[in-house]
Amino acid sequence: MATPLTADALARALRGEGVALSEHTNWRTHNRNHKGPWGPVHGVMLHHTAGTDSLRLCRAGTAALPGPLCTGLITKDGTLHLLGNGRTNHAGSGSAAVLEAVRAERPLPAPGPDAVDGNARFYGFEIENLGNGRDPYPAAQLATAERLSTAICRAHGWSAASVIAHKEWTRRKIDPSFPMLVIRARIAARLDSGPKPPPPAPVPAPVAYEPFPGAAFFVPGRRSELITAVGRRLVAEGCGRYATGPGPVWTGADVLSYAAWQRKLGYVGAAADGIPGRISWDKLRVPRG
């Protein structure tokens, strides 16, 4: 027994379980609440549509049975189309004994006489299928039925026993045309495994740059692997003026290359003399090591 989820809470729970959603216009307020109470709710009821043009029918209904005819419709591609929120014309009257078993999360009895309004007590989801035993349920469609049922059960703290078929609610119906024992087992396994959060975003390793060694370091003939690293950064910045290299010895080619870097930064005249200064060095970002 539970207070129905708000529209936002329902959508959030469904997305959290990885359900692909299509939210139709005004689905948050499209309901039959003026005909009777919505809630407390006790479970999820699954159906098949038994026809074509399911989306239009489930949203609008018919003159004899106005829409919405479900909270949502699962199309063949596995998309859940949210069409209503609140009381919908999906369950009709059903067995009081079945409702009591769902409330207690016990094995279901055979449905008894139709005596209880199921529209007020169950979230209803239609699954697009002819229900003739020959129309297949694609894997994506069944996966969405599993995920949406899990999402609602998880949000309310229910077990898989809270998910039933229309055919288990009343003797008048045969839908959905797949084994409920199988889908409930899948829901139970997903509930036991817990929600699967998205993998954490990779954290980039911090990049350490070489500190400025001072202008006196850069004298002709100085040998250091740091000079090779400087040359590689200059080449990467499009400022390399090397016939060969760069290499570990500070040469005139390094001076010309660094002067090109200084000019790229906007230095002119004597300020672009090819000898590193602290500001231009920090902007070059020579990796440590």
Rank of each mutant, 00 (worst) to 15 (best):
P200R: 15
G43M: 07
L21A: 05
N26V: 00
R186L: 14
F178K: 04
P213G: 08
E126Y: 11
I152W: 03
I187P: 01
G289E: 09
R103A: 14
S159G: 15
E146A: 09
L191W: 12
N26C: 07
A205Y: 05
G118A: 03
V19P: 02
S193T: 01
W261Q: 01
Y209C: 10
G247A: 14
R12T: 14
V203K: 14
T251V: 00
T144N: 09
A20H: 12
H42R: 06
V255N: 06
I183S: 01
A97F: 00
L82A: 05
P111M: 05
C70K: 07
K76L: 10
F178M: 11
T244I: 12
A189G: 13
A96R: 14
N132W: 00
S162M: 00
A13I: 08
H81P: 03
Y258Q: 05
D53F: 03
T49G: 10
G39F: 14
Q141W: 02
G118V: 09
P138E: 02
A20L: 11
P40V: 08
G112D: 14
R285S: 13
P246W: 08
S280G: 13
R147K: 15
P248L: 07
N132I: 11
T71M: 15
K173H: 14
R106F: 01
R134N: 13
P176K: 02
T150G: 07
L55K: 01
P138C: 10
D254H: 14
G247H: 09
L65E: 12
V268W: 08
A110V: 12
D53G: 15
N119K: 02
I227Q: 03
A120D: 07
G78N: 07
G289Y: 10
N31L: 03
G72Q: 04
F122H: 01
L142D: 07
V249N: 09
D114H: 04
P202I: 14
G277E: 10
T52S: 14
R106V: 03
P206G: 05
F217P: 02
S257I: 08
E168R: 02
R232W: 11
R121S: 11
H90W: 07
F178A: 06
G157H: 05
I275G: 10
P200L: 13
L46A: 04
V249Q: 14
I174E: 06
R190C: 04
N26D: 15
L265H: 04
S149W: 11
S22W: 01
G214D: 02
V203Q: 13
A64Q: 15
G118N: 01
V102L: 06
P197L: 13
R232T: 12
R56A: 14
I127G: 06
A270L: 10
P276M: 01
A2G: 04
Y242V: 00
K283C: 07
L10N: 01
L148S: 05
G221A: 12
L226C: 04
A110Y: 01
W158E: 11
A216V: 00
C153L: 10
E168N: 10
T6C: 09
A155E: 11
R121D: 02
R59H: 12
P202L: 13
V219Q: 13
L5M: 10
A243E: 02
P40D: 09
G289D: 11
N26A: 15
L21M: 06
H90M: 14
L46S: 00
V230W: 01
P107S: 11
D175F: 01
D117T: 08
S95D: 03
G86C: 09
V44H: 04
L148R: 05
N119I: 08
S193K: 12
